[in-house]
Design a protein around this nucleic acid. Structure first.
Lengths: 157, 157
DNA sequence: CTTCTGATGCAATCAAGTTGCGTCTGTTCG
DNA sequence: CGAACAGACGCAACTTGATTGCATCAGAAG
């Protein structure tokens, strides 16, 4: 799975991930923080909060750095920033099919967010005169797999 | 438009509003704070932040009281709590047609939110196995009337 | 009018997120 | 390879929307 990069300067055996390539492609600096955070996001199949990401990152990365990396990833369109019902941002890797329209699912019990890729958000709502639409966000509310049957996991707050 | 209430104990000429009736119907106490906040929400045709509501209320109501009234209104299903892109809650009166499905519009410039009542949110997205849907929220992103043409009003923050 | 429950006001507190600044480190260039 | 520079990082302080504890006040019932 080795990529075209000439040599791995890092000792980690799983080095030169697609994360690193993705970051390098932007032309910006390829730093440890960016690689680690992006790898975490890629590994997770769901939207993660800043807290979760910070905890999941291997090396100890500063709170603020994680915020800044996430902000940068969002600006670079690599990640996607989602407002939740608990006033906490969540982030996911922005896949290509999620370019303009795609839907999210948010659990009303544990606030977890996942992406729903196969939702045809073809509806074109009628806006009041003078308003301009730039896209539609669809969020399905309900209970996730983990909360629908067992005792609901309450949101961490 | 006078209601069945025997006597208005308040000096305000426009007394015994539908707000007061609505609150009385819940069986809970009819207090000044609740009336004032609900009247503000009813008068506004859009979603308001806590700040806006506090400013719009006539008598000086404590910050915390406004929070608590809004919380109560939301629990009572009279109001509707909307998470925005600026980490600020917004509230609207929950009309009957907005019972389960209805859409919001949020301006990407000034963060203002309005309700779109006539959006047929008939889409029924396919969820992963084990997930249970409890409703769909549709949010249209774009520019509002005030921000589409003149210099954009930046969000208050 | 009295009583009682629950709403209110005030102050303190919380937590997610942001900012300023000095230091460190990728990257480039010689 | 080593120096130089811009940009990223770490730390601490700060901002702000929202929440909580507690003493007091005020609807509603009797």
């Amino acid at each position: 799975m080795r990529a075209a990069t000439p040599e791995s300067r890092r000792s980690s055996p799983a080095a030169v991930s697609s994360a690193e390539q993705l970051i390098r492609a932007t032309g910006a600096r390829v730093t440890q923080g960016r690689i680690l955070v992006l790898e975490v996001l890629q590994a997770a199949g769901r939207a993660m909060t800043h807290h979760e990401i910070e905890a999941a990152v291997a090396g100890p990365l500063d709170r603020v750095t994680v915020y800044r990396v996430l902000d940068w990833l969002t600006r670079e369109q690599i990640a996607h920033k989602i407002p939740g019902d608990d006033r906490v941002w969540r982030f996911t890797i922005a896949g290509q099919k999620q370019a303009h329209h795609h839907a999210h699912f948010q659990c009303t019990d544990c606030s977890q967010v996942i992406c729903l890729d196969d939702v045809p958000t073809t509806l074109r709502p009628r806006l009041p005169a003078g308003y301009r639409s730039a896209g539609v966000e669809v969020t399905v509310k309900g209970q996730c797999k983990s909360c629908v049957r067992p005792a609901p996991r309450r949101a961490r707050r």
